[in-house]
Amino acid sequence: MSDDTIILRPYMPNDAEWLAARHGALYAQQEGFDDTFALLVAQILTDFAETHDPKVERGWVAQRGTERLGSIFCVRLDKKTAKLRLFLLEPAARGQGLGQHLLETCLDFARDVGYDRLTLWTHQSHHAACALYRKNGFACIEEKPVHSFGRDLVEQTWTISL
């Protein structure tokens, strides 16, 4: 593998600290989120480590050499519905098709293990991510104003039939 090759590898427990820290730092810088967001991400990762079923739930980390570039997770919501979680791209890795590749990997996995639907939770302010979801056939099925992570936001729920 050359140093410029990007791979998607399985999420490993030693990725947790990086993933929580990067979510916290990027969302603080780009969205003005407070520290409670990184704490939420850390709790999601703790829950994943303690309870996930590797047959129907998976996490991936995009990496170039030793540099982590992003992540995406597919977790079970119920027997027929999966939830996309912790979709992150480092700013330097955006606009190169990596987000699409991560999303396709998650969608393919969800289909392959038998889910009928994939859902996700995001915020209206995440314009690039929402455009990517829309391009891939997701529909926004709910929006509601909230005060979360120290900010007034509009939460969105998106879904796609698989």
Rank of each mutant, 00 (worst) to 15 (best):
M1I: 11
M1T: 09
D3R: 08
T5F: 13
T5S: 07
I7A: 04
I7G: 15
L8P: 05
L8G: 06
L8Q: 03
R9L: 12
R9G: 06
P10G: 07
P10A: 13
M12N: 08
M12R: 11
P13T: 10
P13D: 09
D15G: 14
A16N: 07
A16L: 00
E17N: 13
L19N: 01
A20V: 07
A21Y: 05
R22H: 03
H23K: 01
H23Y: 09
A25D: 14
L26V: 04
L26Y: 15
Y27D: 02
A28T: 05
Q30G: 05
F33V: 08
F33R: 07
F33S: 12
D35N: 15
F37H: 01
A38N: 12
V41W: 02
A42K: 15
A42G: 11
Q43D: 07
Q43V: 09
I44N: 07
L45A: 04
D47N: 06
F48E: 01
A49K: 04
E50V: 03
T51S: 08
H52Q: 06
D53I: 04
D53Q: 03
P54N: 03
P54A: 15
K55R: 09
V56F: 01
E57L: 01
R58E: 05
A62G: 07
Q63Y: 11
R64K: 10
G65A: 01
R68K: 06
R68P: 10
I72S: 03
F73H: 02
V75N: 04
V75M: 00
L77I: 10
K80R: 13
K80I: 00
A82R: 00
K83S: 00
R85M: 03
L86N: 01
L89M: 13
E90A: 02
E90F: 04
P91G: 00
G97E: 07
G99S: 14
L102M: 02
L103Q: 14
C106P: 00
L107M: 03
F109Y: 09
A110F: 03
D112H: 15
T122A: 01
H123Y: 10
H123L: 01
Q124S: 10
A128P: 14
C130K: 04
C130D: 05
L132G: 04
L132W: 08
L132Y: 15
R134W: 15
N136G: 14
N136Q: 09
G137M: 02
G137F: 02
A139T: 13
I141G: 12
P145R: 00
H147K: 14
R151Q: 08
R151P: 04
D152I: 00
D152E: 04
L153Y: 00
E155L: 12
Q156P: 13
Q156I: 03
T159W: 06
I160K: 06
S161H: 08
L162G: 04
L162K: 05
